[in-house]
Amino acid sequence: MKLRIKFSKKGPLRFIGHLDIMRYFQKAIRRSDIDIAYSTGFSPHQIMSFAAPLGVGVESEGEYFDIEANSVTTAEDMIARLNAEMAEGMTITGMRILPDNAKNAMASVKAASYRLNWKEGYSPEYSLSKAVSEFLSKEEVLYTKQTAKSVIERNLKEAVYELKAADERTVYMLVDASSAGNVKPGAVIECLAGFYGKTYDANAIQVTREDTFTDAPNGEGFISLGEVGENF
């Protein structure tokens, strides 16, 4: 059966990259004796799919990965067993059984919510609330990204579903996180700063992913990846 596991990643562990986090969980699952299924072949590997890769330096309260399990006990027991194997800063916060026809975590991802906080000693050089209002009032906010091969232009108004300033140093946003249209939260801040001729200083802001979302079954809006499936 398919299980979806939710975890948070904080503190020093935010400096561990995505591939290493995958390896970290493979080992943690072995240590905690979760009855995971393996692929067949000469070098069997655990059947596991991660939702959306998290950038190095970003914290998260809503990360997900799916595994195929041969047997389960209770979510409570399995969460406790995994948590006993976590490094400081990493916590398993949920586990559900997915319906057999559920799309895997990676293919499910459509949106992600982020909280961005200016760190101590830094503050935006403009009014955050005004910048957010300006963003919301515009028809179009073009963001250009230089990649190795070409220049990509994107209207962020189509990719930012929600944006609000909680106070003058905290902003919250819900953005496109699908594989085709993923938007980095820094891109939004870059545009906000750009309204006032300022630049975006990645070092000034702590980004926290609050949750990861997929399309709601009724086709209206999103639901959290953690709401798919059943408790057990």
């Binding site: 503190g11 020093p12 562990l13 400096f15 561990i16 990259g17 290493d20 080992k27 943690a28 190095v56 330096g57 194997e85 490094a87 400081e88 800063g89 990645a202 070092n203």
Partner: peptide, 15 residues
């Protein structure tokens, strides 16, 4: 840590 290669070399906290 964001500027250097493989910051995980320097943060400790390993299992």
């Amino acid at each position: 840590l964001m500027k250097i290669e493989k910051p995980a070399r320097y943060i400790g906290h390993e299992i």
